[in-house]
Design a protein around this nucleic acid. Structure first.
Lengths: 345, 345
DNA sequence: CTGAAAGCGCTTACAG
DNA sequence: CTGAAAGCGCTTACAG
């Protein structure tokens, strides 16, 4: 069944049927009624495919995340779909699984899809092929918004969080309550969140006259693979161990916590700990960790809203926007350490 | 740029270009080379939309989950996309947010999309409108596979887990180590997982000559909304409280655990606890809970494989398949209780 | 092995 | 306010 069947049944032309369906152009009230009746009686649903082909508008967008299993991205997705559902967009979902080649494949396949826009959480912040593919997509008139992670070599719209400010606030707080030796597990330095969070740490130390010490710096790839677990042990075995630790994402926090617990250290007493990104599940286990938090669903929603704006404007002339979402420090006691309690204000 | 541009450039007809792109029909080697060269030089990507319209094959499928924020579904999604990526399908993602009206909207919108198939995790197991919409979709030749939850009134393919067997094994184990008074928080009884898991509990008790007691049964809607938290308190305040509790999903386990911890009870000592579905995060907090576990990614992958099979067969004559994935009991000590240690074998 | 042409189901100027 | 017709970019018998 197609638009011709409806036209015949309602005794009008397909142009008229199209007009009532899309509310494009004028239709006499009585004609509209007839057409609507025919549509209802025949349970007609217009073909989105045919519509897309002739109108050159798919109303589809693509969302690419690096790891849907990380609750952070599940939350982002919730925020995004909460907006799309209201504006009638459909969402193609892709999980790159933190694999750069997989991302390339996805982007390549997307070229033929005629999408209105893409929200991308890049796997790597620095990757020529990603940039090349994104530029091809952009040239095909698909709007692009970056989320959380940046993409060097590509000036484009994005929604990020105040990674620097969040880390700075956390470390500054640790200093204010008396910590002087603060360790950090930093993320990849070629990635915006990894770099900015580390810079926030460095700046907070400097502003308080504390030297940055190599041996208090651990590094990992933001994954859940035991790196932070091992490094936590190593860093605490040093002759002059830190009294507090700062981790750069939720996975790092989990591993660090596990490591401390396995060493029989009491978090918030024997050692202070603040993470980046809150971990809900821990509240139910009464093991909450202080954290730099942000409204992740809002980030997703903002990204979608920005994308929609870009699609509407379409003019390449429009200034690219970088939206930065605030973070806030949530303190729950895990930041404390008895060893330095005397200094606390 | 379209297929005509390529045809012109390669000095062949569009039919030939189409043949080399799709490897449909014979093409002389030298001709193929010419066409491929033209495609490469012009950076041509065929339009998936136009292709879909003329071939009546979108190669798109839809995935509808009730709540992407629940790690269970994030995992399912991982399993699904791990298969789709290999077979060139694109995935429309929808999050119903446990809202039945939202699901109806989604299903309705999907009618025009010409999907090859849908994997559905229904919001409710019993809902006439869902069934009606699914049947309409089925009539439009879209393949359907149910996941985890069932849909009454609809005979269709599905991938489930052995809810009954898993619950039975858990409760039987509790009995074997000496528990006689075992409480349960059961899920919605109109839902397959809710009902089957409760039946497993009932059967295990009966088979061991233990009476099912109303006052040891709590009920909730599988959501994270405080119901189980409150009921745990209430059930333990009874004159003759249970020595062990069984929860019917991961959210219930979290709330129950929190409630027990807030009452200063030591899980695995003062009271036994087994949940349904494992909660990874708790391992990092050294608060692991024994659980009925299942290979969720595999469930997702199986669902996608089954869907693919249905799409390929297409014949409505093919028998509907209900695949049931095994569960296994993972014991970590939380099931124990000192009060009944004497009975343990 | 290759091409001409109809058709997929819509939208959209254009004419009236 | 309404309709005839071209066009969106492909695929697919059919003919040769």
């Amino acid at each position: 069944m197609n638009i011709y069947d409806i036209a015949k049944k309602a005794n009008v032309s397909v142009a008229t049927v199209s007009r009532v369906i899309n509310q494009s152009g004028p239709v006499r009230e009585s004609t509209r009624k007839k057409v609507e009746k025919a549509i209802a009686e025949m349970h007609y649903t217009p073909s989105a495919i045919a519509r897309s082909l002739s109108s050159r508008q798919t109303n589809n967008i693509g969302i690419i995340v690096p790891d849907i299993f990380n609750p952070f991205y599940a939350r982002v997705l919730t925020g995004i779909t909460r907006v799309t559902r209201d504006i009638g967009y459909n969402t193609f979902f892709f999980n790159a699984e933190e694999n750069i080649e997989r991302l390339h494949q996805i982007l390549d396949a997307l070229k033929g899809q005629n999408l209105n826009g893409i929200i991308l959480n890049p796997v790597l912040d620095q990757d020529e092929k990603t940039v090349r593919l994104m530029k091809e997509l952009e040239a095909m008139n698909v709007a692009i918004v970056l989320l959380d992670r940046d993409l060097r070599g590509m000036n484009c719209n994005g929604v990020f969080s105040d990674d620097f400010g969040g880390a700075y606030a956390a470390v500054e707080h640790l200093i204010r309550i008396g910590h002087r030796r603060i360790g950090i597990f930093r993320g990849p330095q070629q990635s915006r969140p990894g770099y900015e969070r580390f810079m926030g740490y460095v700046q907070a130390l400097r502003d308080n006259g504390i030297q940055v010490e190599e041996e208090l710096i651990g590094e990992y790839d933001f994954m859940l693979n035991g790196h932070v677990y091992e490094q936590t042990k190593r860093i605490l075995r040093k002759k002059n161990p830190p009294t507090a630790l700062f981790t750069s994402n939720n996975y790092g926090t989990l591993e660090c916590m596990k490591s401390l617990l396995d060493m029989d250290l009491c978090i918030g007493k024997d050692i202070g700990l603040i993470g980046f990104d809150d971990i809900d599940t821990l509240h139910y286990a009464n093991r909450s960790i202080s954290a730099v938090d942000r409204d992740v669903e809002r980030m997703g929603a903002k990204a979608m809203t920005l994308l929609q704006y870009c699609i509407a404007e379409k003019a390449e002339e429009v200034e690219k926007q970088k939206i930065v979402i605030d973070t806030h420090l949530v303190l729950r006691g895990s930041e404390k350490c008895d060893m330095i309690a005397a200094y606390a204000d």
